[in-house]
Simulated assay, not measured.
Amino acid sequence: MRISTVTMFEQSLNSLNRQQGEFLKVGQQIASGRRVVNPSDDPLAASRAVSVGQSISSVEQFSTARVSVRNSLSQGESVLNSVSDSLIRAKTLLVQASSDTLSPADRQSVAAELRGLREGLLGQANTTDGNGRYLFGGFQDNAPPFERDGDAITYEGDSNVRVQRVDGFREMPVSDPGDAIFGDIFDTLQRAIGVLEAEGKQVDHESLRQAMRDVDASFDNVLTVRASMGARLNELDAIDTVAGNRMLSYQQTLSQLVDLDYAEAITEYSLRQVGLQAAQRAYVDVQGLSLFDYLR
Rank of each mutant, 00 (worst) to 15 (best):
E60A: 12
S159Q: 13
M212I: 08
P145Y: 05
V95Y: 11
S218P: 00
L295Q: 11
R162I: 08
S82D: 11
Q19F: 07
Q61M: 03
D149V: 09
D100S: 14
L24N: 13
S78C: 07
D216Y: 01
I239A: 01
V284S: 15
D187E: 15
D149M: 09
R296G: 10
T127C: 02
N221P: 08
T127S: 12
V52Y: 06
L276Q: 11
D167T: 06
Y262P: 01
G123W: 08
E197I: 00
Y294L: 08
Y155A: 05
T154S: 15
K91C: 01
D204C: 04
L223H: 02
Y269P: 04
D237F: 02
A46R: 01
A90I: 02
D184E: 13
D187C: 05
S55W: 02
I193P: 04
S57V: 04
E235P: 08
F186R: 09
N14D: 10
V195W: 10
E197Q: 11
R170H: 13
K25T: 15
I266W: 05
Q54I: 03
T5Q: 11
V166I: 12
D216V: 03
V37W: 00
S12A: 15
P173Y: 05
L271Q: 14
F146E: 12
V215S: 08
T101Q: 14
G157K: 00
N234P: 05
A278E: 04
Q75N: 11
S103T: 07
R115D: 15
R18N: 13
E206T: 13
L254E: 14
A112I: 00
R226I: 01
N142T: 12
R165V: 05
G123M: 10
A217V: 08
S58D: 09
D106R: 01
G21D: 14
D259T: 02
L236W: 00
A112Y: 02
S109P: 00
